[in-house]
């Protein structure tokens, strides 16, 4: 059954934000983090979910044209009023999750507890 916001678009965007901000986060941790953020966004109150969904569709469409990775980089460096809030939401969810789950992590996502990335 299709969901709104489309989970695939949200997950792809979350993945690129995490890859851009936390490049040393091991892939298994990245997957769990993206799943967490995607789940939380799916559980937003309905007006927020509607707004985030619309932004996700627009950003997803632009990402298809210019590349999601490049778009995330642009949005991260030049916060726009609405799309910037989307980045902020994803960041707040993913950062909170990463450091609550694995507190000893460098700012780039590398584990400090001996786990090999």
């Amino acid at each position: 059954m299709p969901t709104f916001p489309p989970r695939g678009l949200v997950a792809e965007f979350c993945e690129q934000v995490v890859a851009s901000d936390l490049p040393d986060l091991p892939p298994d941790r990245r997957d769990v983090t993206v799943a967490f953020a995607t789940r939380r966004i799916a559980g937003l109150p309905s007006p927020m979910k509607l707004a985030v969904g619309l932004v996700a569709v627009v950003v997803g469409g632009l990402g298809r044209v210019v590349g999601t990775r490049r778009l995330v980089g642009l949005l991260a460096s030049r916060p726009l009023p609405i799309a910037g809030e989307y980045v902020r939401l994803v960041r707040s969810l993913t950062y909170a999750f990463v450091w609550e789950t694995w507190p000893d992590t460098t700012r780039s996502g590398r584990p400090l507890d001996g786990v090999t990335p």
Binding site: R91, Y95, A96, V98, W99, E100, P103, T105, T106, R107
Partner: peptide, 24 residues
């Protein structure tokens, strides 16, 4: 102020402030 919430508080200026999380 758990580490997750500290990271959240630092996230607005991650380039300048992100390193602090390693000393949470």
């Amino acid at each position: 102020s758990g580490p997750g919430l500290a990271a959240l508080a630092l996230s607005d200026s991650w380039a300048r402030s992100g390193a602090a999380i390693e000393d949470w």
